[in-house]
């Protein structure tokens, strides 16, 4: 029993994950790969936040007027996940800079990263 409102959110978030996956597998440009990874992260984060939805619920900050709050745990998890995503992106950019300085190009050679 999923809430009607959540259906488009699930479609959008899983679509973001798939687009990111496609970009990672098909692109050679390191920056595009990093962007694709970010897309995947965003999709997953949207999905997790949607898991905590409750009809009529508000942000879980106690202020006396509301009695129904959305589930706070997914929000806390996503807060952590976002920071982790930022860290990975920053480190990947640093490696991309070094790669560019070493080779003079931002494109990976031949088949790119998904070759076994």
């Amino acid at each position: 029993m999923t809430y009607e409102l959540l259906v488009p959110i699930f479609i959008v978030s899983t679509a973001l994950i798939s687009i990111g996956l496609y970009g990672v597998m098909s692109k050679k440009n390191i920056l595009k790969i990093i962007l694709s990874l970010d897309l995947m992260d965003t999709g997953v984060n949207i999905l997790i936040v949607a898991m905590g939805y409750l009809p009529g619920g508000t942000a879980p900050i106690e202020n006396g007027n509301y009695k129904v709050y959305v589930d706070p745990v997914p929000q806390a998890l996503v807060l952590t996940a976002i920071v982790i995503g930022v860290s990975v992106t920053a480190l990947a950019l640093a490696i991309a800079i070094n790669y560019y300085r070493k080779t003079g190009t931002i494109e990976l050679e031949k088949e790119g990263v998904m070759k076994w």
Partner: peptide, 12 residues
């Protein structure tokens, strides 16, 4: 870079 790509997909 290869590890970052697979590692990030894994963490997702």
């Amino acid at each position: 870079i290869k590890y970052i790509v697979l590692g990030s997909i894994g963490s997702s």
